[in-house]
Design a protein around this nucleic acid. Structure first.
Length: 347
RNA sequence: GGAUCGAACCCUCCAU
């Protein structure tokens, strides 16, 4: 049974669901009784693959065979249902599991509610969790901060951050990056930099993502020199810029009509061995388009195709917009047709 | 006494 369980878990982790199910069935055939861990592994594998209905069937099968579920069993099912958005069913299981609900259950539910954008439900559930005296673990805050960040709720994110620090809840660089991103997208760049200094004092090292977020924040408010300086600084601090760093800066330069800097950076990234992707080209096309340099935008559009980087629906939208702005409706229609024929989504 | 299948929950940054 142990051997089977280990095998099933490993196969599940690498996504070999077919093999998992085969093993599980062959256990039954050999009258080898699966234990609780075996059921968990199978259910978890099914759930991760989005095959929740089958996971529920395994759950029922387990009950029929007289195996009692525990908190983990329910949490696996509840988490799987939440991830496919079947929250009503997830709550059904919460009711069934009653005495088993713990902080992990809440984390799963919070995560799913947040993914759906149900901020009200999110906050209510968090309140309920506190009221029940459940200890929020480090993931609770991580989840809340991230999901509230998606909704642009800066105030709430900031409050939670302070609460987390005050309660000595552990946090990692990802959570801090989420807070920073939220601040920086809200234009609160000073606050973001304060936190940036603060995290260093607390011994948390910024990573490339941290810098990317700050570069983006500076770029959005037009502080292009500071953003450019940060590019150099991150390199010195052992955080090599990646394609996202370059794309972020190229986009900012383009948005603020600094096309020379945008083009220079585009060349620089290639020199450094970072291959431009569809976003890089799109940012340039957007920049040139907004500046009325329609022909330059067109030549970038052709260049990317020649470089084996097919435009996607965003690129087409930008290109078509640019042509319309220039009054070149015929060409715009041509690209619209090309877009449709190329089979890319219309976005 | 310790070690052993001991399992479930977040994962961040770029373009329209």
């Amino acid at each position: 049974v142990y051997t089977y369980t280990i095998l099933i878990r490993s196969l599940g982790n690498i996504g070999r669901l077919d093999a998992v199910m085969k093993l599980f069935e062959s256990m039954t055939a050999q009258r080898c009784q699966p234990n609780l861990f075996t059921y968990h592994s199978v259910m978890h594998a099914l759930g991760s693959a989005g095959r929740v209905a089958e996971a529920c069937e395994v759950f029922e099968l387990m009950l029929q065979r007289g195996q009692q579920p525990d908190a983990v069993t329910y949490n696996i099912i509840i988490d799987a249902l939440g991830k496919t958005g079947e929250l009503e069913k997830a709550f059904d299981y919460v009711r069934k599991s009653h005495s088993f609900t713990n902080e992990v259950t809440y984390n799963s539910l919070l995560s799913s509610l947040g993914r759906k954008g149900d901020i009200k439900g999110l906050m209510e559930l968090f309140g309920q969790m506190k009221a029940r005296g459940l200890v929020s673990n480090e993931l609770t805050y991580a989840i809340l901060i991230e999901r509230l960040g998606w909704a642009g709720r800066v105030e709430d994110v900031w409050k939670l951050y302070l609460e987390m620090v005050e309660n000595d809840v552990k946090y990692d660089i990802v959570t801090i990056n989420n807070v920073l991103d939220c601040l920086s997208k809200a234009g609160r760049i000073e606050a973001a930099f304060e936190l940036f200094q603060d995290m260093k004092v607390k011994g948390l090292s910024p990573d490339t993502v941290t810098y990317n977020i700050l570069v983006n924040g500076l770029g959005r408010v037009g502080k292009l020199d500071a953003a450019g300086a940060l590019l150099l600084e991150m390199e010195e601090n052992g955080c090599p810029p990646n394609i996202i760093t370059y794309n972020t800066l190229i986009s900012s330069y383009g948005k603020w009509s600094n096309l020379i800097a945008a083009a220079r950076l585009f060349d620089e990234m290639k020199d450094k061995g970072v291959a431009p992707n569809v976003v890089s080209y799109s940012c340039l096309i957007e920049g040139f388009g907004k500046a009325g340099k329609t022909d330059t935008a067109l030549s970038m559009f052709n260049e990317m195709k020649a470089q084996g980087c097919p435009p996607n629906h965003v690129t087409y939208n930008l290109m078509i917009n640019c042509l319309i702005r220039a009054g070149r409706f015929g060409a715009a229609m041509d690209y619209l047709r090309e877009m449709r024929d190329s089979g890319c989504q219309m976005g």
